[in-house]
Amino acid sequence: MTDLIPMAALGATPVRASFGPLTLTEEEGLTLVSLALPVGFDASVTEVPLPGPGGYAIGTTSVFWTGPNQWMIETRDLDATSRALAPLPDARTTVQSDGWVSFRITSEAGAAPLLDLVTKLVNLPADQLAPGRATRTLLHHLGCFVLRRSETEMAVLTLRSAAGSLWYVLSGAAARIAAQEAT
């Protein structure tokens, strides 16, 4: 393995902070692979789930829709994912792990604080924020993926270079929600 020491998006180590019921964590160890398939591909030949528009198939390897015939794969085992994609001869993949920063947001108090937070951040109706949904939208003038993993967990992804701005917005909104709940 290389002797270059990797950096997290905001410094030497991934950031993590809690605000009342909400905890924000920079995700590490996930490999992101973007996948594009030509028109007329045959989805039945692969084990990799390929969800439809706005969809997010959550599993050990998760996949979310990013555009017509395009997906993003979240995996911890790139080799296995490559093998699973092998039957798709025309699959175009690009490793994107370093293109994005992903902040995981979890709630200790059910879905409500999570929804309060997301309500302050993105202009999306509730059905597009339900568990199993993934949406690319604008957040603080940044293109972001908003992934809802479960009732109490979501993730927001943006360009790695904008990690500082996204952290400012997420942590600021979470802090205001915590402060309001405290009063």
């Binding site: 395009q70 690009t94 370093d98």
Partner: peptide
């Protein structure tokens, strides 16, 4: 045309 585009600006230093 069979072509796909992916922005990778941030992926590479």
């Amino acid at each position: 045309l069979d072509v796909t585009l992916i922005s990778t600006t941030d992926a590479w230093a």
